[in-house]
């Protein structure tokens, strides 16, 4: 059986600038795929592309395709995409503080999704809303449904946003940095809720984050993006034990650990270059501590690692070995 979501050699351009370059990913039911990288690496753009919102920001698919449950997203018209969004693909926005309409009651905002996508009546939609809120462990669901967004805490709002994403009975949830705007204890709860949904209901979750801690806690597989390309794509455990790409290794090096000596927390010098100034060869070479001549001229292709992952680095064997 083909995977639920399969991105095949996808390139995306906005205004003639290629921002995603030859990205391939796949995700199946019951799986969590983490998409990590710094700002500007193309994570959020991938999310927008998967939900068919690319034309909204003036982008277009330059080559490749996205298959959702065997259907090419490009073959669906605007109406078909609208039906998919919020229906079979749920979307969790980055900032729950601003993702809810301030002048609408919470309940109405969740109701409308199931009314729109499942064709439920007002009463049935509200019953479903309260049921969902209960599943997300929202206390006093009936009172919360009658409240306005400003009356709720950030963590509560993010649960509401997740409830909205779930209300259309999706198979896939795309979560774009769902915990970035929340404090750490609430982050853990939200991640627990999301992973719980995947395990219990067999949803697929595309989790976009720049927090390697969240990745380690939640994901099955990880794709590390750098400057619009996949640098490494592997299962979580081997990636964290023996990262093959210097960029992945550097990201893991940025996670603070208990008992670390003072001053030993590393950063990565420099930042992702703007898309118009991507360097030739391996795009990471200006910031890479291992870079040699070939990295400056030849683009490294994705190669399989012994544990079934993919890595795009000329020196992968030497570094991991």
């Amino acid at each position: 059986m083909s995977p639920l979501l399969s991105i095949e050699r996808l390139s995306v351009a906005i205004g003639g600038v290629t921002l995603l370059d030859d990205i391939s990913l796949s995700l199946d039911r019951g799986q969590i795929l983490g998409l990590v990288g710094e700002s500007g690496s193309g994570k959020s753009l991938t999310a927008l592309t998967v939900t068919g919102l690319l034309p909204l920001i003036g982008g277009r698919i330059a080559s490749g395709r996205i298959l959702f449950d065997g259907t090419d997203l490009a073959s669906l018209g605007p109406a078909g995409l609208r039906k998919l969004r919020g229906g079979r693909i749920g979307f969790v926005m980055q900032n729950p503080m601003t993702a809810l309409d301030p002048v609408q009651r919470i309940g109405e905002q969740i109701d409308v999704v199931s009314r729109l996508h499942l064709g439920l009546s007002g009463e049935a939609a509200r019953a479903r809303t309260l049921d969902l809120m209960g599943q997300l462990r929202i206390p006093e669901a009936a009172a919360v449904a009658e409240a306005y967004p400003h009356q709720l805490s950030g963590g509560m709002k993010q649960r509401i946003v997740i409830a909205m994403a779930l209300a259309g009975e999706p198979d896939l949830i795309v979560a774009d940095e769902p915990t970035t705007a929340l404090d750490v204890t609430v982050q853990a709860q939200i991640i627990q809720i999301l992973t719980g949904l995947v395990r219990e209901r067999g949803l697929a979750l595309l989790l976009i984050t720049h927090d390697m801690g969240v990745v380690a806690q939640a994901c099955d597989r990880v794709a590390v993006l750098y400057a619009g390309r996949v640098a490494e794509e592997r299962a979580v455990d081997p990636l964290f034990e023996r990262p093959a790409h210097p960029y992945a290794a550097a990201l893991i090096g940025c996670i603070p650990r208990e008992g670390m000596a003072e001053g030993s927390l590393k950063g990565i010098a420099g930042s992702v270059p703007p898309a118009t100034q991507f360097p030739p060869g391996c795009r990471f070479h200006p910031r890479c501590p291992h870079a040699v001549d070939i990295c400056r001229t030849e683009r490294p292709l994705l190669r399989e690692t012994p544990d079934g992952g993919l890595v795009a680095c000329h020196l992968a064997e030497r570094i991991a070995g």
Partner: peptide, 26 residues
């Protein structure tokens, strides 16, 4: 340009819904 408008769109809302339910009330 508000996030909740993008959120509504990402959950499948059409133009009429966004205009009359979100934008005009706000």
């Amino acid at each position: 340009a508000e996030t909740y408008v993008e959120a509504a769109r990402s959950l499948g809302a059409g133009h009429a819904h966004i205009l009359f339910r979100h934008l005009i009330p706000n």
